[in-house]
Amino acid sequence: MAARASGLTLVSHDGSRFFFDPGALCLEFLTTGGPGELARWDVLHQPGDLAAWLAQSQLRLDPAQVTVSADELAAARRLRDALWRFARARVAGQSTPAADLATVNDLAGPAPLVPRLTAGTGADTVHSWALPATGTSALATIARDAVDLFSGPYADRIRECAGYCYLIFVDTSRPGRRRWCAMERCGNRQKVRAIRARQKPTGAD
């Protein structure tokens, strides 16, 4: 199954669908839920849920060829929650909790997914992953992506959506002015609020 550019189609609490591109695999992983108030959006309840998400992610793994154990599911939730705290600390300009650093480093240690090129000519050559795979190798790939992101040139462009929807992304645009998780969601909502605020009477006649 060929890999693709990052981005997921998400469904908001009101049932509307929108495309969210966080710009990094490790930030895509945050859409599976999280610690504290984010637990209500958790979708990783059983091992098969992780395999199903890996199929929807930019990894595009065939869930029938990904084995996930109960221990690997628990590790996935630990990694995701650590990445949430890691990202929020970076957004706030705070130091990263040592325990979360250790979690990311530990899960980045095992062998990651093995990349492959599918035979073709020119633009027909595509990137894919060697299968079957394990939850451990998939998590190692996600954790290593986090290592690259948080230590790389875009580390200071990790941001939280200005629409206060919790979603976190890395701004890879050239001007570096991205503010929203998605323009068709929070960006448009903010535009509507701004228009209503300008139209609101400032006082009685």
Rank of each mutant, 00 (worst) to 15 (best):
residue 137 S to M: 01
residue 66 V to A: 03
residue 7 G to Y: 13
residue 120 G to A: 09
residue 75 A to G: 00
residue 72 E to L: 12
residue 191 K to L: 10
residue 112 P to L: 05
residue 85 R to D: 09
residue 31 T to I: 07
residue 126 V to L: 09
residue 65 Q to F: 09
residue 49 D to M: 06
residue 25 L to H: 05
residue 97 P to T: 02
residue 68 V to K: 04
residue 180 W to H: 03
residue 163 G to W: 10
residue 8 L to Q: 11
residue 191 K to D: 07
residue 157 R to Q: 12
residue 13 H to Y: 08
residue 200 K to Y: 04
residue 179 R to C: 06
residue 156 D to E: 14
residue 165 C to P: 14
residue 21 D to Y: 11
residue 92 A to M: 08
residue 37 E to V: 00
residue 6 S to N: 14
residue 112 P to T: 05
residue 120 G to Q: 11
residue 86 F to A: 02
residue 98 A to K: 13
residue 174 R to G: 02
residue 106 D to T: 11
residue 31 T to N: 14
residue 10 L to P: 12
residue 198 R to P: 05
residue 109 G to V: 00
residue 74 A to N: 02
residue 75 A to L: 10
residue 118 T to D: 14
residue 46 Q to L: 10
residue 112 P to W: 09
residue 86 F to W: 15
residue 63 P to S: 04
residue 193 R to D: 08
residue 13 H to N: 11
residue 159 R to M: 06
residue 158 I to S: 08
residue 84 W to L: 07
residue 38 L to Y: 03
residue 202 T to F: 07
residue 2 A to W: 15
residue 75 A to H: 06
residue 104 V to T: 00
residue 83 L to G: 00
residue 12 S to F: 05
residue 40 R to S: 08
residue 46 Q to T: 03
residue 18 F to D: 01
residue 151 S to H: 13
residue 65 Q to V: 01
residue 47 P to D: 12
residue 189 R to D: 13
residue 15 G to T: 06
residue 86 F to C: 14
residue 162 A to R: 13
residue 140 A to C: 06
residue 143 A to D: 04
residue 128 S to C: 14
residue 176 G to H: 07
residue 48 G to W: 13
residue 36 G to C: 03
residue 150 F to W: 15
residue 141 T to N: 03
residue 50 L to A: 08
residue 118 T to C: 12
residue 9 T to F: 15
